[in-house]
Simulated assay, not measured.
Amino acid sequence: MADETAPPARQGRKLPVLFIHDAAIDDFIATLLLATMPDIDLKGIVIADADCIPQPGIDAANRLQQFMGRPDIPLALSEARGWNPFPWPYRGDCVTFGEIPGLRPYRSTVPTPPPSGDKLVAGLLEQAVAKGNKLTVLLTTGFTPLTDVVRARPELAGGIDRLVWMGGAINVAGNLDPATINPVVANKHAEWNVFWDPFAAQDGLTMFGGIHTFPLDITNDAPISKEFMARLQAQGKTFSFSQLAWEAYGLVSAEPFYDMWDVCATVFLARPDLYAPPQKMKLEVVQWGFEQGWLRQASHARHTQNVYLSFSNRNGFYDYVASQLARSA
């Protein structure tokens, strides 16, 4: 897998992307952004049963694609199962998102049961290997939906050019909240995308080198600010993407812990210049005990990863997101 710190030159070809997420509100804004990026070819979207409720989560994703005018993008539900379930209050955000005014005109066309995300991941990787047009995998949930497939068929790893992941906390505190989960397991180091399945996270670090990793260290600097919300609201008078983003973020913007986690990783695909150069780190995940889910540096780890800890142009990040959302379907 490629270990460069910036997306490769494509000689005029679009960058093929597989987006694996867990239907949180920030994931849906990331989806909007991907649809606006002219150099991105979104090959498929896979929903994980992590920070969501699966059926309303995939239904909301389907309705969002209709809103964007992109119902053609393959959409499926991963068969992955995590280890530590996300709190139900977090998982309900996909339900409230599905109730915002911008999505009310649309009805889900997802069949019952939904298409298999494992089959979609495997199929896209098969095509990437066969055609020599490797995928960028954008992963804003736990590793399980990817590692389950690659563990079963290791040759499919050859279809991945680069892996961009939001997860972990290196030099800052994690985000396990003893008010929403039992204090017996709410250690101060773990971040939810790792804690959900720490074993799969370790598998991912063992399978892949050069992962472009966006931990809480950088996403803590990407809050849903009042200034950003005001800009979206103003743009929403003209542009439907901005209006929908304003409605969506309005559901969570008052929560002091809610940041643009997944958007932070997504913007990297189009604007790597907005980020400070990554730190090269060898990483491991604590598997057992009270510190389960702690992503930490480990000199004995097999691979070196690219870890992004700060922006080079934080204002430019907000400007880019707002500018991309200044459009209508």
Rank of each mutant, 00 (worst) to 15 (best):
G293F: 08
G209S: 14
F239T: 03
R13C: 05
A48E: 12
I45D: 05
L146N: 03
E4V: 05
L156E: 08
I25Q: 10
W83R: 09
E4T: 12
K188A: 13
Q297E: 15
Y318K: 02
I25P: 02
A200Q: 03
I160P: 07
G82N: 01
C52T: 15
G236W: 12
S299Y: 04
G204L: 14
A35M: 03
T140E: 06
P85E: 00
A80N: 03
G82Q: 01
M166N: 13
I29Q: 00
A23E: 01
A179K: 15
R162E: 12
V95P: 00
Y258I: 14
F214P: 11
R271N: 00
E247W: 09
N171P: 00
T304H: 02
Y320A: 03
Q66N: 06
L309E: 09
D51C: 06
G174E: 07
I170P: 06
A61M: 13
A9S: 10
M68L: 15
A173G: 11
V150Q: 03
T304C: 01
G44W: 11
N315Y: 02
G102Q: 15
R153E: 13
A270S: 09
M260K: 08
T266Y: 06
L283D: 08
Q287K: 14
L64Q: 04
L146E: 04
C94T: 07
T109W: 08
A6H: 06
G102P: 09
T144E: 07
A276M: 08
L274W: 02
T36M: 04
W246E: 15
C52N: 08
V121A: 07
K134V: 09
S242P: 05
A2H: 11
A322V: 01
W294L: 04
V194R: 04
Y318C: 01
W294T: 11
G69S: 07
Y106I: 06
P183M: 06
E227L: 10
G117V: 05
R107E: 15
A322C: 00
F257G: 08
M260A: 10
Q243N: 13
E255K: 15
S312E: 11
V149L: 05
V149F: 07
K282Q: 15
E126M: 11
W294G: 02
V286P: 03
L120A: 08
R231F: 03
A35F: 02
G167C: 14
K237C: 10
L269Q: 01
W246I: 00
V172L: 10
F199G: 05
V121D: 09
I211F: 09
F214I: 10
V172C: 13
M281H: 09
C52F: 00
P154Q: 13
C52Y: 00
Y258N: 10
G142R: 11
P7G: 01
A329Q: 10
V263L: 07
N220S: 13
G44M: 07
S310A: 15
R151I: 02
L163D: 07
P277Y: 07
P105V: 09
I181H: 03
D197P: 02
V110R: 09
K226E: 13
W196M: 02
Y258D: 09
Q297R: 13
D72G: 10
A298F: 08
L309D: 09
V321N: 02
G289Y: 07
T206E: 15
A50G: 01
S78Y: 03
S242W: 04
L33E: 01
T96N: 10
G293K: 04
S253H: 14
A190Y: 07
V321G: 01
